[in-house]
Design a protein around this nucleic acid. Structure first.
Lengths: 143, 143
DNA sequence: TCCGGCTGTAATAGAGGCTGTTACAGCAGG
DNA sequence: CCTGCTGTAACAGCCTCTATTACAGCCGGA
């Protein structure tokens, strides 16, 4: 298993919803999305649940049920998707508390916290520059 | 388990080697480093192995064995450490190939590859701005 | 009002990564 | 040669992630 693919799955879902909407489909079911991503519908529903809680998609129940974007694709940035599906910080601290008798053990966690914070900010800034609409445009260039 | 802590462990090691050197210790054994990080010496030796392969530390064998920095701490950037210990890309692609019949399934991987590449570059640029000497300075501010 | 299709989620299994631990061969200074 | 440390294999335990089955809940439409 490489790194986790949650961001990839979520962006794929949103991009597909965006294209389907442009083609006239009001909603897509998790089965229809799963057919494009090529995985199990439950995986898709779990990811859609994250995206719904973040306000990026809306769901319709009952007969004719399915999912659609809750915002224009130009207004959904990859940073929003990242926040919706990623819970863990980029870099983990020590599993066990370092030795506080050692000056390095005592002071390194706040020092690393600063650096890691700056690194995450840089990553987030970059993810904030690309929207689902941008991804869709680039995606369609290939075909 | 949060995210993996390899970068944290490696930076801790290098920072401690840097401080020990300043205090007059020529080399530190993996046991001495492990006492500061508060973990098993084998964990430390594994990390030191990565750092040695990257040319960041040097090892001395035989009696009076141990480890020391191979470069000045001002010249070891966190980006070097990151490259030494992290193998996986930041974001994983689909586990199973997406449906190539679908235009999104067909084109999304290169599109995502571009975005992910830019995001990693931003992260790397930020990690390239901080050195082990910087981390040591911030670490000692606490005590 | 009931039917049927889809959602939402729990439970579970398998694969794989990471930490931590033991064990042991290899190396080299004294 | 002895001794202490390195370097690495092997293994266990824990956790995460993906995948899958199962099923209760919801609601539009017949």
């Amino acid at each position: 298993m490489a790194a986790n693919s949650r961001l990839t799955i979520a962006v794929h879902i949103l991009t597909w919803l965006s294209l389907a909407h442009r083609r006239g489909a009001e909603v897509l079911t998790s089965d229809q999305v799963a057919a494009s991503v090529n995985t199990n519908p439950v995986i898709i529903r779990r990811s859609l649940g994250d995206l719904r809680r973040a306000g990026l998609v809306a769901v319709r129940h009952g007969a004719g049920a399915g999912w659609c974007l809750a915002r224009a694709p130009e207004e959904i940035m990859l940073l929003d998707v990242y926040d919706a599906v990623e819970r863990e910080p980029l870099f983990g601290m020590h599993h066990t508390e370092p030795n506080l008798e050692c000056p390095v053990g005592k002071g390194i966690r706040p020092a690393l916290g600063d650096v890691y914070g700056r690194a995450e900010l840089a990553l987030r800034a970059e993810l904030g520059r690309t929207s689902i609409a941008d991804v869709l445009r680039e995606t369609l260039l290939v075909s």
